[in-house]
């Protein structure tokens, strides 16, 4: 049923730290890898894979933005984007078949590929570009929050997080219950003033983004200058010997 369930107490989602994301695309690749082998759905295809215009399905993609500031040099921000598992998910209510649904128990937005007719209306309704129609399977694909990992008791406990979170080498992706004010992710959002994307679309996303921290301003050089004096000057022992010997060469 594509009617949205009443807001769940548990709101599973991601918190993405734009301060630490280095733009390596590891989450993009691990997401595609996990979701291609998952028994939950069809693999994510790549059309014209080695040709002139390759076009594949990805559930998570990393944009790179450049932000021009009023003071200081422009900054580059790498920006991963996947389904935000919105509370008021417009992609769910437009679905004519009931294939798109939001889980009442944890708020995860999913697609039942077996009854998806591939009309594409849900992708149109999503302001974030989180849904992609698979070119080979002709059904809608989206982030499942790795629902087949996070509850998967055959996996060791530390692996019961979404593949993108597990693979991030920078620790820029956090998974947890954003409905619980005391959860680690909720505290992170509170501490770092995490925000939602396109709030004016009225979708109430669960996922939050943490802003880049303010950049250090360059200090006056003479503040550091004393520390930049050669450390071996007048030094004895091995370092002194090394310094004198190297100086002679």
């Amino acid at each position: 049923m594509t009617a949205l369930p009443p807001p769940s107490a548990k709101k599973l989602g991601l918190v993405i730290d734009l301060d630490t994301c280095v733009g390596c695309h590891a989450c993009v690749v691990s997401c595609k890898e996990w979701n291609s082998q998952s028994p939950l759905g069809a693999p994510l295809a790549d059309l014209d894979a080695y040709g002139a215009a390759p076009e594949g399905t990805f559930l998570n993609r990393v944009h790179s933005f450049e932000v021009t500031r009023e003071a200081g040099p422009p900054v580059v921000v790498h920006f991963p984007k996947s389904c935000l598992h919105c509370e008021d998910a417009p992609c769910v209510t437009v679905c004519p078949t009931g294939a798109s649904y939001k889980r009442a128990e944890d708020g995860i937005v999913l697609v039942n590929e077996d009854i998806c007719i591939g009309c594409g209306l849900c992708a149109w309704a999503c302001p974030y570009g989180a849904r992609e129609m698979d070119g080979a399977e002709r059904v809608m694909k989206k982030c499942t929050l790795c629902v087949d990992r996070i509850y998967n008791e055959t996996l060791p406990e530390p692996d019961r997080v979404p593949a993108c979170v597990k693979s991030c080498p920078a620790g820029a992706r956090h998974f947890g219950d954003l409905g619980d004010e005391d959860s680690a992710v909720s505290r992170l959002v509170a501490e770092r003033e995490g925000f939602a994307l396109m709030p004016d679309q009225g979708t109430k996303p669960v996922n939050r983004y943490l802003p880049p921290r303010p950049r250090d301003a360059l200090p006056e050089f003479d503040v550091l200058a004393p520390y930049l004096e050669p450390v071996t000057e007048g030094a004895g022992g091995f370092l002194g010997w090394l310094d004198r010997t190297l100086g002679k060469i």
């Binding site: 993009v28 990393v62 944009h63 790179s64 932000v67 021009t68």
Partner: peptide, 10 residues
């Protein structure tokens, strides 16, 4: 932070 511009598409 400031004015946003796409540097590189995903």
């Amino acid at each position: 932070i400031g004015k946003v511009r796409l540097l590189a598409p995903p």
